[in-house]
Amino acid sequence: MSTPAELRAALVDRLTGDGVLADPAWRAAAAAVPREAFVPEYFLTVPASAPTAYAPVLHGDPGRLEGIYRDQTLVTQLDGHLSPSDVQGAAVGAPSSSSTLPSLVLEMWQQLGAEAGHRVLEIGTGTGYSTALGAHRLGEHNVVSVEVDPGIGARAAEAIKAAGYSPTLVIGDGLAGYADGGPYDRLIATCSIRYLPLPWLHQVRPGGKILATFTGWSFAFGLALLTVTGPGCASGRFLPGHVNFMVARPHDRPPRQPITLLSGDARPSEIDPTILSDWTGKWVAQLAAPSAEIIGAGEQQILVDSATGSHARTAPNSDGGWTVTQRGPLRLWDQVEAAIQAWRQHGAPHQQGFGITIDGDGQRVWIGTEDGPTWNLPI
């Protein structure tokens, strides 16, 4: 049976071989920080369960350590309060906290460009594993981490201290940042957001970097690296890959109301609805209809607007195309169609072809250049 140190070394070797750990300093951090100290127990998805169920893996269970050192995200809390030791057998619930897969944590730290001497604000302490990595690499006095959940924050603080690190840990609303520790050279968010909170822009110095994942109520995601250009202003680009995080609680969608698909105006759809099953296609649709939730799959898509009750639904028709039916003050499918067509006219790039600008006029996502197709984020 392998020891934790052996499992950790094997993980570091795999991530190095995969090209994730290109920076020797971050490789040393990954080799030093014991993930098992931060994830003593976790949930694993029960295969083929519907609705999705989660089985607890507790201290002493066979395979627990091997699971910790696989490159996988480990759910550590359900429904905002259930930990693995709180349940007997499999439980159904919504994941509300997790330990992100190590490859992504380490890749994001490297994408942030954080170096020794940089002062960094981390939004979302979670288990504390990422925080400890940052403290090891940058110096614990240079890391400030904010966690909204007091219980999660207390457990993380114990684990971080036990691992030998003493960064500044704050319990509070991460969307407000932590002005007392600023100004910062870098900010990294381990939750996703609908728009960039203005306090972050004022707490990171001009020239500093912000790495954050943007999302919406349709749960499409895009990771962006921004440079702060002045007080309240920033610009940047979205990065390659496929990154998603749990939504910051204040930015999460309102509770879903019962869906009643009433009659409406029907017409042929000008786009294939299956494009909304594509990673970037769904992202574009979300930009076009930011207060809507996309439900469904394939040719049968349903969009429901939380603010107005507007909805749209698609279905294949007998002509080999698709029919869309819309109802309410917002013509959701019209908005999505126009956005998808504009995206395709610009080559249908992955999100790395998108950029973002934040200034006194709002927060805007665009394709190619700031003169390209543009959508306002909901702030």
Score class of each variant (00 low, 15 high):
residue 281 G to R: 05
residue 216 G to M: 09
residue 184 Y to V: 03
residue 18 D to E: 15
residue 104 L to M: 15
residue 240 P to L: 03
residue 152 I to F: 02
residue 375 W to F: 10
residue 262 L to P: 02
residue 302 I to M: 11
residue 361 D to G: 13
residue 80 G to S: 04
residue 347 G to H: 07
residue 319 D to I: 05
residue 353 G to S: 09
residue 355 G to Q: 07
residue 372 G to W: 03
residue 348 A to H: 06
residue 65 L to R: 09
residue 97 S to D: 10
residue 266 A to Q: 11
residue 50 A to Y: 13
residue 138 L to Y: 02
residue 50 A to T: 14
residue 259 I to M: 15
residue 106 L to F: 01
residue 328 G to W: 02
residue 182 G to D: 01
residue 298 G to W: 11
residue 63 G to S: 06
residue 152 I to A: 13
residue 230 G to E: 00
residue 303 L to Q: 09
residue 101 L to A: 13
residue 84 P to V: 00
residue 146 V to K: 04
residue 28 A to Y: 00
residue 201 L to P: 01
residue 80 G to M: 07
residue 185 D to W: 08
residue 57 V to P: 04
residue 60 G to W: 04
residue 349 P to A: 07
residue 144 V to I: 14
residue 154 A to K: 11
residue 318 S to K: 11
residue 194 R to G: 14
residue 344 R to H: 07
residue 322 W to Q: 00
residue 332 L to P: 11
residue 240 P to C: 05
residue 288 A to V: 10
residue 17 G to L: 08
residue 61 D to S: 12
residue 210 I to F: 06
residue 145 S to W: 08
residue 133 L to M: 12
residue 369 T to S: 14
residue 43 F to L: 05
residue 162 A to V: 02
residue 85 S to C: 04
residue 87 V to P: 01
residue 116 A to Y: 14
residue 4 P to G: 07
residue 96 S to G: 11
residue 189 A to H: 09
residue 133 L to C: 13
residue 185 D to P: 07
residue 164 G to A: 03
residue 224 A to H: 03
residue 17 G to Y: 00
residue 352 Q to M: 10
residue 7 L to A: 13
residue 165 Y to I: 06
residue 207 G to S: 00
residue 57 V to C: 03
